[in-house]
């Protein structure tokens, strides 16, 4: 009975986290299309519901009722597993995101490593989908995306080391709390820029959406998918984008901290601040999609390995030397 209660409580907490995440993913797709349209002087989706807010729901209904086509030459088990893996990996990482000092599902010691590990696993959904389709375009898309995600993970890892040097802990709440006086975006601004661009590449967003470059590869790794399975890839992708925004706001923008510690601002709960920061970063993501043309593949690789990696490594040395020289290292 006791175990049953514990399990019930945990399931309740998980549902209370995941349902808002899924709903906000649907809303964020609408926001993305809307921002994209406004930059190009269009209206975007504005018909279904007020301001077109229910467009994503209509799309979801359409996907649910469409037939799921499984190619006869595909490797069926892996073909079906791929969208499930993508979706699951995109959702389980939300477990460690702190919405305030106490509102966190799993307050683990190695929270940032967990986030990094799960986001590095995200490549498997894409590789599995691309390979199991047994078709040229998906396979090329999967290979591109594997190379791209592995390359940009390296620089994201080094950027995380930069932040960890200033914090002295791998716990996400500690990272947020150590930004009480100064958000890390100010001393580590170049790292924030590199993190933002690497996050674009890590989530296959334009201008780095080469795995699904429609002019070259039809739809990349998801060419053979239809109906709900395609929608799951889509949901996973957008949940990953939101997660990257959350990671950026925790690492650099002070997470659930309010911008100013003055009376009316401190009343607002931390979750609201975190959501506002995530939305700010997401609107930047959407703007980049609208205004930047797609990179060429060799330029993408060069940017990852020859520009970002040396820059972020140099910055690690600089940060460490600065902290060591001025005796600011967070040793406890």
């Amino acid at each position: 009975m006791e175990y049953f209660n514990i399990v019930f409580q945990e399931v309740y907490k998980i549902l209370f986290l995941l349902v808002p995440v899924l709903v906000s993913v649907a809303m964020i797709v609408w926001l993305d299309r809307r921002v994209w349209a406004f930059v190009q002087k269009r209206q975007g989706p504005n018909v279904v519901g007020p301001f077109g807010l229910f467009q994503s729901l209509a799309d979801a209904l359409k996907y649910i009722f469409k037939e799921i086509i499984i190619p006869s030459t595909s490797n069926k088990v892996i073909f079906i597993l791929a969208p499930i893996v993508t979706m699951t990996l995109a959702l389980i990482s939300w477990a460690v995101i702190p919405f305030s000092a106490t509102q966190v599902l799993a307050d683990i010691n190695v929270g940032i490593l967990y986030l990094f590990a799960v986001s590095s696993l995200g490549v498997y959904g894409i590789i599995m989908g691309g390979w199991a389709s047994n078709s040229k375009y998906p396979f090329l898309g999967a290979i591109r995306s594997a190379a791209q995600m592995v390359s940009y993970e390296v620089s994201i890892g080094v950027i995380i080391i930069n932040v960890l040097l200033c914090v002295g802990s791998l716990n996400l709440n500690d990272i947020v709390e150590s930004q009480q006086n100064l958000w890390f975006i100010i001393p580590l601004f170049p790292m924030f820029v590199i993190f933002f661009i690497s996050a674009l590449a890590e989530t296959n967003r334009p201008p780095f959406d080469l795995p699904e470059a429609e002019a070259e590869l039809v739809a990349g790794y998801q060419t053979e998918y239809s109906g709900m399975m395609y929608a799951m890839f889509w949901l996973g992708e957008y949940a990953n984008i939101l997660l990257m925004c959350a990671m950026g706001s925790i690492l650099f923008l002070g997470g659930w901290m309010s911008p100013i510690e003055i009376y009316p601002f401190t009343l607002v709960p931390g979750a609201i601040w975190l959501i506002l920061k995530i939305l700010l970063l997401f609107i930047l993501f959407a703007l980049v999609k609208a205004i930047v043309p797609r990179y060429r593949y060799d330029q993408l690789m060069r940017l990852g390995w020859k520009v970002f990696l040396p820059l972020s490594l140099t910055w690690v040395v600089l940060t460490a030397s600065y902290l060591f020289y001025f005796n600011l290292l967070p040793i406890n």
Partner: peptide, 18 residues
């Protein structure tokens, strides 16, 4: 937990992809 996470990042995230 550190070893477990590093195992995930290094082996699953990078080596197994290659």
């Amino acid at each position: 937990e550190f070893l477990g996470m590093i195992m995930l990042i290094v082996y699953v995230g990078a080596v197994a992809v290659l």
